[in-house]
Amino acid sequence: MIAHSEYDFLRRFLKSRSGLILGDEKQYLLESRLEPVLQKMKVPDMSRLVALLRDGPAPAGLADAVVEAMTTNESLFFRDKNPFDLLSTHILPELLQKRAPMHTLRIWCAAASTGQEPYSIAMLLKENERLLGGRRVEIIGTDLSSDVLARCEEGLYNQFEVQRGLPVHYLLRYFTQVGDQWRIAPEIRSMVRFSRLNLLQPFSHLGTFDIVFCRNVLIYFDSATKSDILARIAGVTAKDGYLLLGGAETVLGLTADFVAGNRRGFYVPRAAASAMALAAK
């Protein structure tokens, strides 16, 4: 069992490195997630791990390995379905009316995890190719974990993963079978670019996005961190762009930069909502 002081140290360490908030009774989670890290990095026990992180010299990659092991990477294709329905039936048609034919549509998945979300968006856009009217599309998937980004790049999924949320006709159309694995088609793979990003760090260098997916990641942060991230997301969202959060997430009480959109399930920058209200008068 991990000592109280060591658990406290690791909680502070994770909060400062990734913003992850670990509750009072998560010792079991911590130990079960970090056990493989101890083995991989040849660290004998948790006490030694804490000593290395606190006092050094920590082996290269140890701190990153600890943070990555503790961040949740559960993901599935078309997770919750509703955001993707909204994208194809409402957001995309509305956005394309506002964008010139030469405009490159830019979409950011702020917590790409193992790639299912950005690839779901890419497949959906491929299905709606006629709607795009020849516009270029750029989907950026970012994540804190380099391990999951490597999986994104590979675009290889096991049999369970391709059956979680993915309609079978998408499987037939956009995957090829490689032994008992399934690889995303090159035409979908090429629509998405992946890079490593910690949401606690600046991300204005990513440029401006028409649509931001930041789903099921804010729940791991405290209120101050959520507010900070949302304010900075507002800074990279087009004035008439869109923000989609997870089902259990909201902007209410966290930022004044976004307000609820005209359909349940997405948010728009406050300026856009004001302009729409004025136009409606």
Binding site: V168, L171, L172, Q177
Partner: peptide
């Protein structure tokens, strides 16, 4: 496999 899935659909 793909063949069986396509045939089923």
């Amino acid at each position: 496999d793909m063949g069986h899935i396509a045939r089923a659909l």
